[in-house]
Amino acid sequence: MRAPLTYSILFHLSVFVLAVYGVPWPQPDIITPSQVIEVEVVAVSETPEPQPPIPEAKPPPPPPPPPRPQPPQVAALQPPAPEPEPEPEPAPAPPKPEAKPEPKPEPPKQKPKPKKPAVKLPKPPRAKPKPPPKDDFASVLRTVEKLKKKPPPPKKKKDKSLDEQLLAAVQRHQRSPERAQRAPLGQRMTMSELDTVRRQIERCWVFPAGAKNPEDLIVEIKLELNQDGTVRRAEIVDKFRIQLDPFYRAAAESALRAVLNPRCSPLKLPPEKYSEWKSMTLGFNPRDLVGR
């Protein structure tokens, strides 16, 4: 860091010049000597992702595609040189110890829900793999699972309009509210039952207020639920966008935090209608959260 020195020299030089040649003409009131501000360049390096969690999770993690969606800022900031040092430090220690600590921590999570709920994010079967992502929002990606089978891809069909119409009819049919009526009346979710869940989740949704164009930040979360109302799986539907848009990612993560919040678990749902709600979609719309 020789910036301060440079500044100091410049400053003293300018004082000297002023003393010799006088103050440049338009010189309003006397200025207190400007103290040099250390605008030191801060070397920023990305710390190695916490190796710790990963080791254990090795088996499962490999899949995660996240080829490190580094936040752009970091990339810009990080001067390569300094990095080497930081890494060694954090990495070494953690890895081993973790293995043990982890198992224990798990139980606590489960406590809320004795049985299955143990693992919130990961699939129920594997209890261990939970410690997921090394990567930034691997957490988000990781929890994501491909539950969703998209409706038949209508795109391919360009030839016959009749075919398209048929397809459209199918899709419409599938979506149409009438379908819901197929379920025996007594088994369908009532408005008040849905409303109870809505209010429950609203209390757990902390959205960073003040985002620009909040109307563009609608997040859909696909939920798979256990019979006791705990979340077995939560998946952000638009996985693509969270990689590209930090605002959307922030919104999506806030939605995910809402459904994973222990305070909102279990969801208050009628057990007898489990087949109706065992999977559901939540649409988080921050539209009304901005301003008052």
């Binding site: 070397a43 992702e49 919130k120 992502p133 957490s139």
Partner: peptide, 29 residues
């Protein structure tokens, strides 16, 4: 050298982690 990590407690994952080098008097920045 100042290093930090931000963790998502519910997702049990690190959200970001960075290290900074600076002169000691610049800790505030």
């Amino acid at each position: 050298k100042v290093e930090f990590r931000l963790w998502d407690v519910f997702a049990e994952a690190q959200m970001t982690g960075l290290a900074y080098f600076t002169r000691p008097e610049n800790w505030r920045r």
